[in-house]
Structure formats: structure tokens, C-alpha cells
Amino acid sequence: MLKKFHGVTCNPTLLERANETCTVSNLHKLAAEALTYTNEFMCQSWGSDSQEMYDNGMKISEPDRDKIVIKVPVTKEGTVAATQLQKSGVRICLTACYGSKQALVAAGMGVEYIAPYLGRMTDNGKNGFDECVKMQQIVDGLQADTRILAASIRDAESLADLAAEGLDTFTFSPDVARQLFDEPLTLSAAEEFEKAAARGSQT
């Protein structure tokens, strides 16, 4: 079940947007900072082939392989690198997932996570919600330990809808997290409680 907020994730695109360099040394710095607040840091390896992705993944995860999860895309080269990284004791998240069939790859490999991009699938004409739900059904049906890490979530309603279908692992922005507490009726009720408390304290 969804127990708490934890973990930090990034990828080369997010690093670029944040004006952070995509280097091993900088990822070590970011991981060290993040792990003072949480118990998991996900970051993406890169490379033109599986060997380069493997080498970078090993270097990135070196400071703490219990808490640093290496992301690799669900491509042929990426999955080869992921297999080798797993054998070397590295935790793996297959990322850039755009189709439910890719959950079969993740489950078959026994990786810890696979990250489907909900919003981006929908942007590209797919039913992102249905794809994510089907992925969860696949790993459940195969009794695999792989967790569906739903990503590219743009609003709290999508988060709630996915949770109602049995998904329990998500990555989302601070804006979406704030939306979880943004319910006008609740805010109105809380305001009325405070007014009643103030009136009661005067008697």
C-alpha cells in the first residue's frame, strides 16, 4: 500500500531543466544531499550502447547501492545494461515505458521498478491510464515483484484514480503533491472549525 512520501528521482532532461550538469560527480553530490532527507535516490544512466550504460550505472551507484536506484530505458541496449547491473548488485528501474507489453520485460527480468509515463502516453494518442492499469494487472498476474512506478502524473485526480485501480507507487511533482490537500470543502470546514473554536473561547 501507499505508506508515505519518500524518494527523489531525476533524469538527464530534468537535470537540464534545473541547470544541473549530467555528470557522475554531480549526481554523487545530488544523491548525497537527497539521502540526508530520504532513503532512496533514482537517477538515470546514459550511453550509446549497453556497455557505456553499464559503466555509468556502476559509477553513479557506487556511493550507496542500497539507496541509489539506476534508471535505464526499456530498449534492447538498456535492458542488456540493466541485466548486467543487476548481476553487479545494482537496483534497477526500467524507464521511458510507453506500452503495457513492456511490463512483461520488466517482470521477466525481475527488476525492482518499471516507470510508465502516464501523461506522455496520453499526449501521444494512447490511453495512458489504461496502459498503467494493464501493467499492474500483468505484474500481479505473473506474481512478479516488479513495482509499477507511475510517472508523468499531472494532477492529483489521476493519482487517486490509479490508486483506486491498485497501483501504489508514483512519482510526481511538488505541485501535484500540493493538490492532494487542495479541497475547497475541506478548507471551508477547517475555517468554520477555527471560527467556532474562537467563539467558544470567549464564553
Rank of each mutant, 00 (worst) to 15 (best):
S50F: 01
W46P: 04
M109L: 12
G119S: 15
C97E: 14
M58V: 12
Q136F: 01
T186L: 11
T13N: 15
T75I: 09
D155E: 12
A156P: 10
H6A: 07
H28K: 03
E157G: 00
I114V: 10
A196I: 07
V24D: 08
Y98M: 15
N19L: 02
G166H: 12
Q44W: 03
T38V: 07
Q136G: 06
L2F: 11
F193K: 13
F181G: 06
T146M: 08
H28Q: 04
K59M: 03
G200V: 06
E112G: 02
E157P: 00
L15D: 08
R17Y: 14
A81S: 08
V74D: 12
L187D: 15
Q143D: 15
D145G: 15
K76R: 09
K67L: 01
Y113T: 03
R65E: 03
Y37V: 03
D168C: 07
D64L: 01
S100N: 13
A164I: 10
Q86V: 02
S45P: 01
D130K: 13
W46R: 09
K59W: 00
T21N: 14
A81V: 04
A103F: 03
G141V: 10
T21V: 11
A197S: 12
L94S: 09
C22F: 13
F129Y: 14
L94M: 10
S152A: 15
D155F: 00
E40D: 11
A106C: 08
A32K: 14
N11H: 09
F181C: 08
V80L: 09
E191W: 04
P73Q: 12
R91E: 06
V72D: 06
Y98N: 08
S50N: 07
T95P: 00
T36P: 00
T122H: 11
K59C: 00
M109G: 04
K67F: 04
A197P: 00
A198R: 15
A103V: 06
D161E: 11
L187Q: 15
Q137I: 01
T146W: 05
T13F: 14
L2G: 05
V111Y: 02
D55R: 10
T122G: 08
G78C: 02
F172I: 07
L85V: 06
L185V: 13
A197V: 08
V176D: 12
T38K: 00
G57F: 01
G57Y: 01
G7V: 08
S88H: 08
E192R: 15
L142C: 10
L30E: 09
A177L: 07
M53G: 04
A189Y: 13
L118K: 02
L142P: 13
E52D: 14
N26K: 13
M135Y: 00
A115K: 07
T36Q: 10
I148E: 11
V8G: 00
E77M: 00
K126D: 14
K87H: 03
Y37E: 11
R120N: 11
E165T: 07
I138F: 04
F170R: 11
T23M: 07
G57R: 03
E77S: 04
E157W: 01
Q143P: 02
S50C: 04
N26P: 02
L15E: 09
A107F: 03
E52P: 05
R199L: 14
R17M: 15
